[in-house]
Simulated scan of single mutants.
Amino acid sequence: MRADVRWKLCWENELQLSDHVELTDFFRKTYGPTGAFNAKPFEGSQSWAGARPELRAIAYDSSGVAAHMGLLRRFIKVDGVDLLVAELGLYGVRPDLEGLGIAHSIHVMLPTLQEFQVPFAFGTVRPEMRKHVERFGRHGLVTVMSGITVRSTLPHARTDLPPTRVEDPLVIVLPVGRPISDWPAARLIDRNGPEL
């Protein structure tokens, strides 16, 4: 990690309007190159795309926001079994800092995850991120799973779309309070809410 990058944990209600505006700009610039649709939710001062995080790990350097990861505690259903997780998402790294990486974000969050006493942290990424997350997963901190259907609600009810979205992303699980062997075998995960 670069010496001039500093991480800050922020509860959502601690953020000022100026923080949201800065994060919105960061997400538009970070997600925009992956497709205009990916940057679309970040308009005005909205610094979240689906579910709103309750806690954020934000890295700053002399140029502003360098990286971000959000956290939201929730119950998901894993093949019908209720499971408390800390969902990790809303992840991004400024393009000029590639290599700062998801590993640094999770290491910053780990003490807080342990304080929350959740059994697992959970997240999803699109299949195009496979090489990136598998490279991170080989260090044994997380388990990367594929072939699992994930159902989420849309962030806003719309008359022209069904209320839920069904995807086949890569599922990332980080054991926090229980071993990975306690994670239920899954074919379907219901978020029962929008993706973080």
Rank of each mutant, 00 (worst) to 15 (best):
G177R: 12
V85I: 14
V108L: 07
M69K: 04
R191E: 11
R151C: 11
D182I: 12
Y91G: 03
R6W: 11
L9F: 06
L174R: 00
V171N: 00
G44N: 04
L90Q: 12
V173P: 00
Y60N: 04
F116M: 11
S47M: 06
R52A: 12
A67V: 08
T149I: 11
R126F: 11
V173L: 07
R135Y: 10
G92S: 04
D25Y: 04
R2W: 10
P169V: 13
K40L: 09
C10K: 15
D61P: 08
G89L: 00
L9C: 01
K29S: 12
W48E: 02
D168G: 13
K40I: 08
S47W: 04
P119H: 05
E12V: 06
E134N: 09
P163Y: 06
I102H: 09
F42L: 06
I172F: 02
D190K: 13
D82Q: 13
N38M: 13
E167D: 11
P41F: 08
A121M: 07
L88M: 12
P162H: 03
P111W: 02
P95I: 12
I189W: 03
S45F: 10
V118G: 01
E98P: 01
E167L: 08
V150G: 05
E134V: 06
L100W: 04
I102K: 08
D19E: 05
H20K: 10
G147Q: 09
